[in-house]
Computed example of a mutant assay.
Amino acid sequence: MESIPNARSLLCFGPKQPYPIALYLGFRLLKVLDAVSIRFYEFPLQVVKLVHLKYLAITYDGEIPSSISCLWNLEVLIVSQHNNIKRSNLPVYLPIEIWKLHKLKHLQCMGLDLPDPTSADDDSLVVEKLLTLSGVSAHSVTVGVLARIPNLKKIGIKIESAHDSVETFSFLGGDQFSNLLIRSPENVTSVPIQFPLFLKKISLSGCGFSWSYMRALNCLLHLETLKLRWYAFCGPVWETSDWCFSDLKYLLLEDLDLKRWDSTRDHFPSLERLVIRHCYNLQEIPPDFAGSKSLEEIEVHDCRKEVTVGIEKQRKRYRNIKCGLRVRFSGDDEKAK
């Protein structure tokens, strides 16, 4: 690789490597470095010399050095973990110098948190261009931190205790956020949460909510995308009753223990795409969904065949050619109908 010293991008493809691999980083004009597939046991200090970098993505389990602030052109920083094992009960913070990356737009750091810049007594520590923050825990969602990210639109939070869920969402008010992702590995967010009213996209995973708590989401009149993964809600029956998701366009149900979904298309008048994955207990979708005028596609992955058969019967009954159906089982090629 030394023969192309003026390279602008270095992309490392393939599965993640379990062992360290020597990577040449002598490209002084490099702007994009995507090395997520390579595991670093020590932070590659050559990286901080690449001052033209705009995009940096690596896999590293340790602490980020303060010299990261040398990458003053950086717009995207992604730090993935090789091991998702929690290292201690104490938060592990990014260096305070991370606040000097004033061009940063996207920050994704699994297992790391943003330090509170107010402790540094420096008013210049503001990242006005940051739009997306994900992978952090509740320790990053404080008044001091959010005040220094005035244009933040999307936030992904890892909840590790019920106390975190209460403490965190007391700060998420107003209309600042349009996209919220919550990941809870141990079903600890069963404590009711007051969601920001102006959210347009929500992704929940591992929260363990009761289906009755779906009313809290139904109050979000601007909600357009709802993704429920890995026991985000628990229980055999989801009954929408008189609830109406008036603006919802995309609904994902994945790895849920849901058996019966009692609803009607009138409760989802704007739904355009329905995706159901690995819901092995689900018996059928609501009996009139395929007759919806707004619904364009239903995707079914690894569910009971009765679900697919029921959808096909609905399409024939309503003669809905517009509503496509994609079915896939593990080991099979995807079938579009």
Rank of each mutant, 00 (worst) to 15 (best):
A7F: 13
L11M: 04
G14F: 11
F27A: 03
F27E: 00
L29P: 02
L33Y: 09
L33S: 14
S37D: 14
I38N: 06
R39E: 14
E42N: 09
F43G: 08
H52L: 05
L56F: 14
T59G: 08
D61N: 07
I68A: 04
L71G: 04
W72V: 02
W72T: 04
L74Y: 15
I78T: 11
Q81V: 06
I85P: 05
P95V: 11
K100R: 08
K100E: 02
H106R: 12
C109Q: 08
D116F: 00
S119Q: 11
A120K: 01
D121R: 11
S124C: 11
L125W: 12
L133A: 11
L133K: 09
S134C: 09
S140C: 14
T142W: 12
K154G: 07
A162H: 15
S165N: 10
T168F: 05
S170A: 05
G173C: 07
F177R: 06
L180F: 06
L181H: 02
T189E: 07
S190R: 12
I193A: 07
P196E: 03
F198P: 01
F198G: 05
K200P: 00
L204P: 05
F209A: 04
S212E: 05
M214P: 14
A216Q: 03
A216V: 01
L221N: 04
L223R: 13
E224S: 15
L226M: 04
K227V: 12
W230C: 05
C234D: 15
G235F: 08
P236K: 07
W243Q: 12
F245G: 13
D247V: 00
D247S: 13
K249Q: 05
D255K: 06
S263F: 13
S270V: 00
E272R: 11
R273E: 11
R277D: 08
Y280S: 12
Y280W: 05
G291H: 10
G291S: 08
S292I: 10
K293D: 11
K293G: 03
S294A: 15
V300H: 09
H301E: 09
H301W: 12
C303K: 00
K313Q: 08
R315D: 04
Y318P: 09
K322W: 06
L325A: 11
R328G: 00
R328T: 02
S330Q: 05
G331W: 00
E334W: 02
